[in-house]
Amino acid sequence: MSLYVNIKKVMGNFTLEVEFSANNEITALLGASGCGKSMTLKCIAGIETPDEGTIVLDGRVLFDSEQKINLSPQKRKVGYLFQNYALFPNMTVEENIGIGVISGKHERKEAVEEKIKIFYLEGLEKKRPHQLSGGQQQRVALARIMASEPDIIMLDEPFCALDSYLKWQLEQKIMDSLSGFQGTVLLVSHNRNEVYRFSKTVAVISDGRVETVSEKKSLFAAPKKLSAALLTGCKNISRVEKLAEHTLRAVDWDLELHTEKGLSDEIKYVGIRAHYLKYTEREDLHNVMTCEVAKVIENPFSYIIMLKNKSGKDDNSQIRWEIDKDLWRDISVKDSPIRIIFKEEDLLLLE
Rank of each mutant, 00 (worst) to 15 (best):
C43V: 05
A45T: 02
E48H: 10
E52V: 13
E52D: 14
T54H: 15
L57A: 10
G59S: 10
G59M: 13
V61A: 08
K68T: 12
K68L: 09
I69V: 15
N70P: 04
L71H: 05
Q74T: 03
K75F: 00
K77Q: 05
G79S: 04
L81V: 07
L81S: 10
Q83D: 05
L87V: 04
P89I: 09
T92F: 04
N96E: 07
N96P: 06
I97S: 05
I97L: 04
I97Q: 04
G98C: 10
G98S: 09
G100T: 11
V101P: 12
I102F: 15
H106S: 14
E107G: 03
E107S: 13
R108N: 12
A111C: 11
V112C: 07
E114S: 14
K117I: 11
I118D: 07
E122I: 04
G123L: 10
E125H: 10
K126C: 04
H130N: 15
Q131H: 12
L132W: 02
G135D: 06
G135P: 02
G135Q: 01
Q137A: 11
R139P: 05
R139C: 06
A141V: 06
M146R: 12
S148M: 09
I153T: 13
I153P: 11
L155H: 10
D156T: 02
